[in-house]
């Protein structure tokens, strides 16, 4: 197991439905022990990609290796090395949290301790409650618990914190950090960029079925995308200028327009600004709705 052993290798992956390409030739690798965030608006091909990696969907073409195996032809032993937290919780039969976790623990060769996992997701007080009687956020935590009960080498988290309150999200992040420190490789999709920034080592941004960028989170979009922007209004017209030396630029503006240029602002693009630039503005509109809803 070298430091840069690839747990996931994807080359020129394509998935088409009729004439429509949901995934249109993407390539990336995920190294052992890293947390890789897959970002992108709804319908960009994120979930399709994830489900191909998890073995749920067949690809149209391209090479895919997950833990050294083609997921579409994988064995039960391969599945035992994965943990999957699906995007939607779905429903569960009439079983309690502890019954569900004990049952799933029994399916894996080297499971974690059931009570420790229940405590890790903060459901100690609900351990004997029927899962269907829990709130949406609590059910999501059961999903996460089921995902990690088998001590996976590779964990898929597909929008894991949707429906969490801020406190639950913080404690979920703490749990993920524990998993990271134990060496778990994690593939995370999320609509929350702060979550990607908190947890991810690297991120890939998918838009329109293509990987538009792939980089460590703090250098997504390239260094140029983070050059500060100066905005002001001159002669009734909005102006802006990207500059690596905003102080000097503002000084030159003042020299030219007087001591208080109209609506002057200087800002450094945030991760969200960089991301929205990457996925393009039509997708940005989708995302806005998504976050608002």
């Amino acid at each position: 197991m070298s430091a840069h052993e690839n747990v996931v290798e994807v080359r020129d992956l394509r998935k088409t439905y009729g004439d429509v390409a949901a995934v249109d030739g993407i390539s990336f690798e995920i190294h052992r022990g890293e947390t890789f965030a897959l970002l992108g608006p709804n319908g960009a091909g994120k979930s399709t990609t994830i489900e191909i990696l998890e073995g749920y969907r067949e690809r149209t073409s391209g090479e895919v290796r997950v833990l050294g195996t083609d997921p579409w032809r994988a064995s039960l032993d391969w599945k035992a090395r994965l943990g999957i937290v699906l995007q939607s919780s779905g429903e569960t039969g009439a079983v309690t949290v502890r019954e569900q976790l004990s049952h799933f623990a029994a399916l894996y060769p080297n499971p974690r301790d059931v009570d420790e996992v229940i405590a890790a997701v903060g459901l100690e007080h609900k351990a004997n409650s029927l899962i269907r009687k829990l709130s949406g956020g609590q059910r999501r935590r059961v999903d996460v618990a089921v995902g990690i009960i088998g001590r996976p080498e590779l964990l898929f988290l597909d929008e894991p914190t949707t429906g969490f309150d801020p406190e639950a999200r913080r404690s979920f992040w703490q749990l993920v950090r524990t998993l990271q420190s134990e060496g778990t490789t994690i593939v995370l999709t999320t609509h929350y960029l702060d979550e990607a920034a908190q947890l991810g080592d690297r991120a890939g941004v998918i838009a329109g079925g293509r990987m538009v960028d792939i980089a460590p989170i703090d250098s997504l979009g390239g260094a140029d995308a983070r050059i500060p922007i100066v905005r002001w209004v001159e002669g009734g017209e909005a102006r802006e200028e990207r500059t690596a030396t905003p102080g000097a630029f503002v000084a030159s503006l003042i020299a030219r327009l007087g001591p208080e240029p109209e609506n002057l602002e200087v800002f450094r693009p945030s991760l969200e600004d960089v991301y929205l630039d990457l996925v393009g503005h039509e997708h940005a509109a989708d995302l806005g709705q998504e976050v608002a809803s």
Binding site: G55, D77, L82, I84, S89, L107, G150
Partner: peptide
């Protein structure tokens, strides 16, 4: 979703 979850387990 029950079967999908089981499908992802061994």
């Amino acid at each position: 979703g029950t079967l999908k979850r089981l499908a992802g387990s061994p």
